[in-house]
Design a protein around this nucleic acid. Sequence first.
DNA 1: TCTTTAATTTAAGCAAACTTAAACTATTAG
DNA 2: CTAATAGTTTAAGTTTGCTTAAATTAAAGA
Lengths: 219, 219
Amino acid sequence: MKNVSTEDYLSVIYKNQNEAGEIKSNLIADKLSISNAAVTDMVKKLSKEGLINYTPYKGISLTQEGDSYAKALVRRHRIWELFLFQIVGLPWEKVHDEAEKLEHCASDELINRMEEMLNFPEFDPHGDPIPDKNGRIPKRPNHFPLTKADVGAIVSVQRVNDSDNQFLAHISNLGIDLRSEIFVKEVISYDGSMVVECNGRTFTISQKAASNIFVEKAG
Amino acid sequence: MKNVSTEDYLSVIYKNQNEAGEIKSNLIADKLSISNAAVTDMVKKLSKEGLINYTPYKGISLTQEGDSYAKALVRRHRIWELFLFQIVGLPWEKVHDEAEKLEHCASDELINRMEEMLNFPEFDPHGDPIPDKNGRIPKRPNHFPLTKADVGAIVSVQRVNDSDNQFLAHISNLGIDLRSEIFVKEVISYDGSMVVECNGRTFTISQKAASNIFVEKAG
DNA sequence: TCTTTAATTTAAGCAAACTTAAACTATTAG
DNA sequence: CTAATAGTTTAAGTTTGCTTAAATTAAAGA
Ligand SMILES: [Mn+2]
Ligand SMILES: [Mn+2]
Ligand SMILES: [Mn+2]
Ligand SMILES: [Mn+2]
């Protein structure tokens, strides 16, 4: 097992790489709240350790080894999140920060045991996929932001953006949960907010919030 | 919350202080597997931070503040241990090492939630007391090593030494658990080993093992 | 193409927590 | 009471991961 710092770099790279698998050093610095110079330093070390590909002034990307290490970290993180949510009963806006630390300090045995307790789940409390022991990532039907749903449609929540705790607490408060069904009654053209019905209650949801909720057409 | 290193020092001091509340720098170095020089360094810092009392060449002891911080750490550690044992189902020889890391990275909220799930327990899986939120430590009836039990006596296990995982796995294998009742049938004077009955099975237990099992007379 | 700007790297330095080796104190034995 | 020894501290140096400021490279606009 690598140290916490190394793990944080790998997981930031993994989560923020573009479609081509590349990331700017800039973005890493941003996400970790450190200077660019520190990133350059560390990136050299990670490269020497064979975890990333790096050519100065060009790009940064994960090697095979770095990628599978990062995938294992994401796995740990999401299993912790689901465990805290489902077994311990923490609300979904609190599990991420907790998991951010716990992911670095549980043995594989404990992670696997929790996975078993949770019955080998495919998705975390925010709807993000959990890689299995072999690094396989569950696929999911296409989903799109709630803002793209048509008036009159009934959709079901598949995933929510887990990067803003206030947002999570907010929609949870409105009664929106993973797998909730939402009936789109009206879209206010002025500001893009939506009038929806969910769990028998009708309320308005802002465009900003709706854009962070991902849904599929309800069958 | 202090950093991991500081926490490790405090908890080693707490757990290894003598009756007068003092500890040799020697012992700290030993327990943390680092040099004496490193301990001297750190001990100065902790002293400056008001967590320990320190006079060069004399003694090291916890201040009020250091003591209550250490107590909170022990609380975290033991709640984690019991949680892993009872809720997650890890065997008692595995919970200590896991808790050793987890104790540094769960929020108070999570610890308190686990405590609640466990119904405000008083003792960890090895029979060690769990300080409550206010630092109060549950008292327990007198207990003594199994080696001191008389032939013919029936005793119940109150606590086991949690510092050796092999020992824990061994006695667990023999069927000895916390609160097990043990009937002392015979003591072999040659090597001090004991023939005992526990859960209907009769077997021999070495003096070494028996000396790490603490019991009280069964009522 | 040349110049301006933005992104990135290099240089120099710092703090934390270690190390080994040497110097110092305290304790204990003769 | 002195000398040997055990325990502790100081000195000097290392590694890791960071900082700011200066230099370099790449990209974009005129
Ligand atoms: Mn998360
Ligand atoms: Mn998540
Ligand atoms: Mn323990
Ligand atoms: Mn214990």
